[in-house]
Write a protein that binds this DNA or RNA. Structure first.
Length: 560
RNA sequence: GUCCCCGUAGCUCAGAUGGAUAGAGCGACUGCCUCCUAAGCAGUAGGCCCCAGGUUCGAGUCCUGGCGGGGACGCCA
């Protein structure tokens, strides 16, 4: 590929000047007047060679002159090297894209290694909320980016199916159950008060009738707990399915106790000699590993803190062969990061294991006002309600289009808007109109896909065409960067920019602008070349949307 | 009090290892459909990149100290 060729040539030329192994960039400049590619290499070498950047640039330019596929090289600004490529070189990108098709954009960073992405991990105490939604979209997109980068990805959902929160849920269901049978039993303080609790109580009553009436015994409470947990997990799975998110495994906390992992973890930690007893509790010297203070593992009442199963859980990830793990969590969990890593370091795992992507909270606005409440959940808006209202495509895109660590304001008015203001539709629409070109090319001229593949792309010499092609050629680089940074929003940015350029290109052939520039002209060679561009752009937009888990429609039907 | 994140156009936000005149969408304003879907395009206006120092040939980006907003600092999960 020509980018590598130029990059290699620059590296060689730098070595000849006595600066081997220098770091530099070769990228597409923002301003098209700066050529198809530009490098800062002369600037980067200036201090090392103790020469003026422009002087070095001139020297490099002379060494690189005559490079195949390059039309000319300019020295510009403070010492940039601007490369202007021959039209055939630029157009060549299109053939590579058309040939790779659905695989265009993939790389082999992971070279088949295993990696786990843990996300959502909601406790079964209520319906999923918008924070979970953001996490579902983020985790799934990060997982997908990693797959596109050659990793073997495992998606896991961890949930706490025991413990105090779950007992509060069980007690809340019990109260509603007894209430439905006419008993005046109040929902406990700190209990769950959403309508869904009463719904579960109703389902329970349909199933068991009055069997637990007045029964305050532990056995009844246990079975009510199990029933409620099963119901809520079921609901969460349905909500995730509607959001098109699927997991390889749902891992329950109780499994860690049942198979002895928690007990084994206590033993293993004791063996390190880093534990001690104080005030009746068992502590671990996590402060040795960068935690702010030591942490309690086992409380004075003999029960473990959350910390212990968490360490046990991550050891299980390691032992299951996941030596690379990305945990997607809300920023409110950030205090647990240091302590879990410290616990794992005590057991010999490397610092920085596992990796975390922490995201900020989500708020919803309608008409400029914050929307807070949900009928079913009582105190928050649920993911299911949002998806029902705006659809999975829009919801996913909106959750992904901001950096995880930035606060997200979900604008419902914008999400529901079926116009150019809505970035999702802008991207999908660009894809759909490209598909339409192929449909019409077939109808009107009998052109098949092979026409684009055989096209002479050097005919594409308009500035806008060159710009679109260079943008398409950058796609694999963007995906790689987004995967490495665990940053799906970079893909959104890329897609919006690409869609804008594609639309701009498309409109340049509008009848009132320049009919000669339309795609479906009678000149067969020209039409083929333009279809090659359209086909490549369709592939890029389609693949980009696929990475994000968003559909790429071949046709946009305007809603009522 | 300690730690983490954020602070860029009226609004919501991008700005990869420091590089050319700081970008996009929305909102505002002006244009563009007898002909490939106007869910679009072309253009105009709008900036002390929170402040102050520092490093550098060069800082929105790195360092220090402030200010403002959010979050976390439990033998809670």
């Amino acid at each position: 590929m020509f980018v590598e060729r130029i990059s290699d040539a620059l590296r060689e030329a730098a070595a000849e000047l006595g600066a081997a192994g220098a770091g530099f960039r070769l990228e597409r400049p923002k301003d098209t007047s700066h050529g198809d590619l530009a490098s800062n290499i002369a600037l980067a070498l200036a201090s090392r060679l103790r020469r003026a950047p422009r002087d070095i640039a001139q020297d490099l330019k002379e060494r690189l002159d005559g490079l195949e596929g390059v039309d000319r090289i300019d020295v510009a600004g403070p010492g940039f090297l601007n490369f202007f490529l021959e039209a055939a070189t630029v157009g060549g990108s299109l053939h590579r894209i058309l040939a790779a098709a659905g695989a265009y954009g993939r790389n082999d960073d992971g070279s088949g290694r295993r990696i786990m992405v843990e996300f959502v991990s909601a406790n079964p105490t209520g319906p999923l909320h918008l924070g979970h939604g953001r996490q579902a979209a983020l985790g799934d997109a990060i997982a997908s980016l990693l797959e596109w980068s050659g990793w073997q990805v495992y998606r896991e959902f961890y949930f706490n199916d025991a413990g105090a929160q779950i007992m509060r849920l069980a007690e809340s269901v019990r109260a509603r159950y007894q209430q439905s049978l006419g008993h005046d039993i109040p929902v406990p303080e700190n209990g769950y008060r959403g309508d869904y609790v009463a719904e579960i109580a109703d389902l329970l009553r349909q199933k068991v009738g009055r069997r637990y009436e007045g029964d305050q015994g532990g056995a009844a409470l246990q079975s009510m707990r199990d029933f409620a947990v099963a119901e809520l997990r079921d609901e969460q799975k349905k909500d995730l399915a509607a959001f098109r998110v699927h997991f390889d495994e749902y891992y329950p906390e109780t499994r860690l106790y049942d198979d002895g992992r928690v007990a084994a973890t206590i033993e293993a930690l004791d063996d390190t000699g880093l534990t001690y007893r104080s005030d009746g509790a068992a502590w671990l010297r996590t402060s040795r590993f960068g935690d702010q203070k030591d942490r309690v593992m086992v409380k004075s009442d003999g029960s473990p803190t959350y910390f212990l199963p968490d360490v046990a859980y991550h050891m299980s990830k390691w032992e299951r062969g996941f030596h690379e793990v990305v945990n997607v969590q809300g920023a409110d969990h950030h205090s647990t990061v240091d302590r879990v890593r410290a616990g794992l370091q005590a057991l010999g795992r490397r610092p920085g294991y596992p990796e975390y992507v922490l995201h900020q909270m989500v708020t919803v606005e309608r008409g400029g006002e914050e929307v807070r409440f949900s009928k079913r959940a009582g105190s928050y808006t649920t993911l299911a309600e949002l998806v029902a209202e705006v659809g999975a495509d829009v919801a996913r895109y909106f959750f992904l289009m901001r950096r995880p660590e930035a606060h997200l304001t979900f604008d419902l008015d914008l999400a529901l808007d079926q116009s150019d203001r809505n970035p999702v539709y802008k991207v999908q629409y660009a894809h759909a109109r490209l598909c339409r070109l192929f449909e019409l090319a077939g109808d009107q001229y009998g052109d098949g896909p092979d026409v684009a593949e055989a096209a002479d792309t050097s005919l594409l010499d308009a500035p806008i065409e060159r710009e679109v092609i260079n943008q398409l050629a950058e796609f694999p680089d963007f995906l790689r960067r987004a995967a490495r940074a665990r940053a799906p929003h970079l893909v959104c940015d890329y897609l919006e920019k690409t869609a804008g350029l594609v639309n701009s290109w498309y409109q340049s052939g509008h009848p009132t602008r320049d009919p000669a520039r339309r795609t479906l002209v009678s000149d067969g060679a020209l039409r083929a070349a333009r279809l090659a561009l359209a086909g490549a752009a369709r592939i890029v937009l389609g693949n980009g949307l696929a990475v994000l888990g968003i559909t790429a429609p071949e046709r946009m039907e305007r809603g009522a």
